[in-house]
Write a protein that binds this DNA or RNA. Sequence first.
DNA 1: TTAAAGTCAATAGA
DNA 2: TCTATTGACTTTAA
Length: 474
Amino acid sequence: APESPMSSSESVKSLTELVQQPCPAIETSKDGKSQESSEAPASESQSTTPLPLSGHSALSIQELVAMSPELDTYGITKRVKEVLTDNNLGQRLFGETILGLTQGSVSDLLARPKPWHKLSLKGREPFVRMQLWLNDPNNVEKLMDMKRMEKKAYMKRRHSSVSDSQSCESSSAGIDYSQGASPQPQHQLKKPRVVLAPEEKEALKRAYQQKPYPSPKTIEELATQLNLKTSTVINWFHNYRSRIRRELFIEEIQAGSQGQAGSSDSPSARSSRAAHGSEGDSCDGVDAEGPPDAKAGGPEADESGSAKSQGGPAEPASEAGEEEEAPRGAACSERAEPESLEDTDDEGRLRAPRQGSPPAPQRPGDALETLPNSAAEGDASTSAASASVLTGESSYKSKESSERISSVPSTSSTPAAGSQKANSLQSLFGFSEAASSRNTRDSSLRKKKAANLNNIIHRLEKAASREEAVEWEF
DNA sequence: TTAAAGTCAATAGA
DNA sequence: TCTATTGACTTTAA
């Protein structure tokens, strides 16, 4: 551990200690999301004190993050999962006390960690916290203590019914969970969560395969046909894109590690695989670098030709009209039902929005877009464009995400720039770099892709390096 | 403005 | 009760 003298190491040291404390506060945030926002902007200077810890000099976690050397996110999450599992510690507890995140976020993070170089400063924070936590020899004990305290508090509360909660909270942990009984003004303020029916998801996925970045018009049509709010469709695309992207990261990692040593392990492996079942192919549609016309070499299957655009309707040049592909000669226009759809959907639904379908909870805003259109005009433009979108089965499989490419470099290459600091920090983070060496191997996989996407690779690499530079500039 | 990144929080499942 | 999933929202970046 002792290697780089440097003054920085000292400050770092103190920081480590800080982190080792069960940092109380993180949790209190529940009511004041402000907390986060306050730290975020901080950017550089020592400004904020993210963690209310005991008033200290110390650097903020952001600073630590900024100085942190490249971390093996996959390895870190793997270890964290092991520790938590082995000690029977839950994600909620861990997330709230150590990371300052909710259970769902922790679950997601642990299951699908993104490679370090793809993370923003903010996104790296949890990993730095995890690493620091892993380095803390008493980490488990501390969490256990928290757990005990929580339990105690809970019991107490239960017995004392109305007791003034605050007293307990303030004590150490600051975690308030259990206050479920809180009075919350809740009335009807909350809008019910939208739950998309399986058929709706299928339709959206198909649409995604046709066009990962649908035009507003297409979105509008989809929304109309599925009887969803436009915003829901938009959100769905945003979420789906980013989630697909993450799946790819995982695959990439897995592929790499596997090829390399057969260290199958990976718990997440199954998960990603599983996910694939349904959307596997859909992934192809991703393309990192998105917005920019994703011209990626050939993927996209050219939207030029084919376009059996139905005769009609318009569909300005924009895009809606041309997607589909081609395979089957059948004019897929609706019904055709390419293979995949077989049972899943009933096209009928599309045309006639499921009104009373069970699953969907009443969405408040329905009123607005439900155009009665379906028939006449609906048919014309709408169905034309979206019909194909909804029914079609895309086929461009070659599409590759460039992400993987960029993810590869993860290995070494620590920017020369902050290297000094980085060095001194290595001890702090206890580097687990061994792991990082793996990835380089997905060669075969990469090769194929590289062949098709050379240009993209270049662009991405460039971008990647640029990114790092910026970060380290700090 | 748009897309991406990061999260929250509801809820489905085990 | 715990974890996984996912629609929505917020922040950040281009």
